[in-house]
Amino acid sequence: MSERVLLATFEHEDDLLAAVAAIRRKGLQIADAYTPYAVHGLDRAMGLRPSRLPWVCFICGMAGALGMLWFEYWTAAIAWPIDVGGKPWNSLPSDVPVAFEAAVLLAGFGSVFALLGVSRLFPGKRPRIVGPRVTDDQFVLVINETDAAFDADEVTRLLQGFDVVSTEERLTDRKGRL
């Protein structure tokens, strides 16, 4: 279903942060914010949930370490025991470096691919940019007009208190994309 949204453009991050706080105080829904760089404190101001990516990283890392420890134990002590300098077949100290490397490798790849997957980034993807200057010097706040009582003029007046440069109403496509 397509939705109506209001795009508000700002020139300064402080204006954006203040506007986000004001919009949320009014009980309106913020769909997203587009900025040329990571704005400190924006995630907190928008009330975003903490990222779940660290969990993916941790689970992949543990899977790498434990899986590799098991694999080394299985190869060196069960499937094909090899005597190295008279040491026991099952020698934990010799297993640590490879287990560590496997943990780092899986944690790294796991987080990167999970991030790409969640953000739907893939080779050949056509970027949809909300406005060309969000990659340069402008900040765009996208506000949902889901509420029937949404009054675009009133919100625009509110935003003018934060030096909004321009506001614009748009329809998203059927998947809710701009």
């Binding site: 300098g85 008279g86 040491k87 100290p93 010799s94 640590v96």
Partner: peptide, 12 residues
Amino acid sequence: WYSQYMLIWYSN
């Protein structure tokens, strides 16, 4: 700690 231990353990 491990680097010190492992080299000594390994060369024995």
